[in-house]
Amino acid sequence: MSPALWYALVGALLVAVAFAAFAAHTHVVRRLLAFNVMGTGSFLILVGLAQHERGPDPVPQALVLTGIVVAVASTALALVVFRRWFAATGRVALPEDDTP
């Protein structure tokens, strides 16, 4: 197994773990963290699979670079919205998830 394939497999594991965490937690910040880990896992799959057997491929690397910037921006926006939501309602979960 090449290291690149190993990256892809670790990425798959990260996606699955983060997905379980996303489903298990209701706190919006925990969900955001899970969502970010899931994104990181998918980046690992994308770059790892592309590099497997062929060596570095600039196209997926550029896509992942773009994806990282978008992920950072959307995370920051989500935090702004969450803080606004918390300031307005005092809640840390969405109404649909209120029942414990």
């Binding site: 798959a12 594991l13 699955a16 773990v17 379980a20 965490a21 996303f22 298990a24 799959i45």
Partner: peptide, 12 residues
């Protein structure tokens, strides 16, 4: 959540 995560790991 746990079966969902496990299933997703296997599928990926």
């Amino acid at each position: 959540a746990l079966p969902l995560g496990g299933g997703l790991a296997l599928a990926l």
